[in-house]
Amino acid sequence: MIIKINGKYYKIKKIEKNPNGKYTITTENGKKYEFKNVKIFSEEELK
């Protein structure tokens, strides 16, 4: 799965839903981001 952050695309390693309704997304390079609204892309959609 792929996520778009600030115009760049990252591969997703893990998605966790937090009790506060936000999502914590861990990218393949180990960085964590927290979002309220998340749009996930499949690799097929990006081709």
Rank of each mutant, 00 (worst) to 15 (best):
I40C: 14
E43C: 15
I2S: 09
M1C: 11
K22G: 15
S42P: 08
N6K: 11
G21F: 02
K4E: 13
K4V: 14
K32N: 05
Y23W: 15
E16S: 08
L46A: 09
T26W: 15
N37L: 05
I40P: 05
K11M: 06
I25V: 14
G30L: 02
K8Q: 10
Y10H: 11
F41S: 06
K13L: 14
K8G: 03
G21T: 01
E28F: 11
Y33T: 02
G21I: 00
E16P: 00
Y23P: 00
K17C: 13
I2N: 05
T24S: 06
N29W: 05
T26P: 00
E44L: 09
E34T: 14
K14V: 10
T24H: 04
N6L: 08
F41A: 07
K47P: 10
T24I: 15
N29F: 07
E34S: 10
K39W: 10
S42K: 08
K36P: 11
V38K: 04
I15G: 00
E43G: 03
L46Y: 06
F41P: 06
T24E: 10
K17E: 06
N20T: 06
K8M: 11
K4D: 04
I25M: 02
N20E: 09
K14N: 11
E28W: 11
K36R: 10
G30M: 01
M1W: 15
I40S: 05
I40Q: 07
Y33N: 01
I3H: 00
Y10I: 12
K22Q: 12
K11V: 09
G30V: 00
K39Q: 13
N18K: 11
I3W: 03
I40T: 06
G30Y: 01
E16L: 05
K14L: 13
E45T: 10
K4H: 08
K22N: 15
K14G: 09
E44N: 10
I2M: 15
Y9R: 03
P19I: 12
T26N: 02
V38G: 10
M1N: 06
E43K: 03
V38D: 06
F35V: 15
F41N: 03
V38A: 07
K4F: 13
E28G: 05
I12V: 14
K32V: 15
N37F: 14
K36W: 14
S42F: 15
E34F: 10
I5M: 06
E28R: 07
F41K: 06
N37M: 07
K47M: 09
K13A: 14
N6E: 09
N29Y: 08
K13F: 09
P19N: 10
K32C: 09
Y33I: 08
N20A: 05
Y33Q: 01
E43P: 08
K11A: 05
K22R: 14
K4I: 14
I25Q: 00
M1E: 04
I5E: 01
T26S: 02
N18V: 03
Y33V: 06
F35Q: 05
T27F: 15
S42W: 15
G21M: 02
N18C: 12
I12W: 01
K32G: 02
L46Q: 08
K4L: 14
Y9T: 05
Y9F: 12
I15K: 01
N29E: 12
T24Q: 07
F41Q: 07
Y10A: 04
I12H: 00
F35R: 07
F35C: 15
E43I: 03
